[in-house]
Nucleic acid binder design. Structure first.
Lengths: 232, 232
DNA sequence: TGTACATCAGTGAACGCGCGTTCACTGATGTAC
DNA sequence: TGTACATCAGTGAACGCGCGTTCACTGATGTAC
């Protein structure tokens, strides 16, 4: 018992320092962007020699990967919290809450947002470890839609029936969601549209086109809920 | 006369070489992404010594800027061509053609797409010279909407009237478009949603969620035309 | 048309830089008996 | 509880790299009279 306790003492220190490296790295990321993320600079700020970092991360890329995974986790946390805090509201209200939570996080952490929803860092595909937080996001969206259906707040008009080819294209996501195909298609469209709106704003394309980003975003999200999701 | 002809001879050579540098740079961009764009490597491939490039571009950043401007111009070309080739179709058909042209270009030039619609390169704001091609894009969208209205193919339901604050937020773009405010808002939403759909696909987020990207995109764009624009 | 000078493109060497990663090492902490 | 050994964190020097940019230069092309 004493042995395992002391053993975990070393491990606790290790975890602490790993955390510290990640925190410093995240700060660097926030300030200079992923491209400029330098192992040496991080090491300097942590107060160790650059080679010591290799005790914790086998390479610079692994450090970046860890940050990517953390960023996904952070969005998932925000979204889950927003969804949980709005269970008693109507579908459109919950949609507003969830989309606002993503946007707020994105504005607070633009570089991290860019890291996961902007241009992928060259030579990168999503690491395995992002599957779990991405799934959490998907679950929130699916639950939102399911609740909306069950409560009768979601009244999709079936006037634009899904062609067979589109239905087939959606196979993986349909299996995951277990909802009517047009609801899934609408949900996905609303979801990607939200990212379009956020990226467009965050990456500067609304500059000199729109004055009040908050009002604009809120309104467009309401429009998505109404027109695309079919809420109300 | 002879003088000005020979003077422009030198100038023609200069333009040719400038072009060659840009072409090589664009090829490098396509292969390795903007981060890895190196003045020295470009110079090597053009067949000159690195310092010679400074006769044409005052710095690496200016070279990148030129590529950004060109990329915007390329999208604008595609979009204008698609719009021009589809003047006789219905609004939804024209919308399909225009959105497909953006997506096709994006898939053919992913790094260039990422350069202008993905994460901005750190320390960059859109250079002045992008205003012109961006305007050309805006004009296409506005004309699309105007034609749709005039032909009665666009029947926006005024059930979701624009709150004053949103109307005010849209002031610059309303002045530019000179169309009913809700039409402008719908157009902008459809437009940014298109970018969301393209980025989501191109940046890998549809991976293992959707099987047939072509069918999926086409359908979602039809949905946008119908549900958001109010086409038909 | 011919000569003297000015402009410009391209060369080659050099600058200083910060980077990722490796490696042999020291010393502290944990483990086994 | 004490000793002998194993594990691990962190050090410091060194590697090779490619980069952007500057600068004095050569030689060709254009200009003015």
């Amino acid at each position: 018992m004493a042995t395992s306790a002391s053993k975990s003492a070393r491990e606790r220190v290790r975890e602490e320092i790993t955390r510290e490296i990640l925190d410093v790295a995240r700060a660097h990321l926030a300030e200079h962007g992923p491209v400029a993320l330098s192992l040496r600079a991080v090491a300097r700020d942590v107060g160790m020699v650059s080679s010591a970092v290799y005790r914790y991360f086998p390479s610079r890329d692994d450090l970046l990967t860890a940050l990517i995974v953390e960023a996904y986790g952070a969005v998932a946390d925000e979204v889950e919290a927003a969804a949980a805090a709005s269970t008693r509201r109507h579908l459109s209200g919950r949609w507003a809450a969830v989309t606002a939570s993503v946007r707020d996080w994105a504005r607070a952490h633009p570089h991290e947002y860019g890291l996961i929803y902007g241009t992928p860092v060259p030579g990168y595909q999503a690491p395995e470890a992002t599957i779990e937080p991405v799934n959490r996001l998907a679950v929130v969206l699916v639950e939102l839609l399911r609740d909306g259906l069950e409560r009768g707040e979601l009244t999709p008009e079936h006037d634009l029936a899904l062609p067979k080819r589109v239905h087939a294209a959606l196979a993986p996501v349909l299996e995951f969601a277990d909802l009517p195909d047009d609801v899934v298609a609408r949900g996905l469209l609303a979801w990607t549209s939200m990212f379009g709106a956020i990226s467009y704003e965050l990456f500067g394309h609304l500059h000199s086109a729109v004055l009040d980003y908050d009002a604009y975003f809120e309104h467009q999200m309401a429009r998505l809920a109404h027109d695309v999701l079919g809420a109300r």
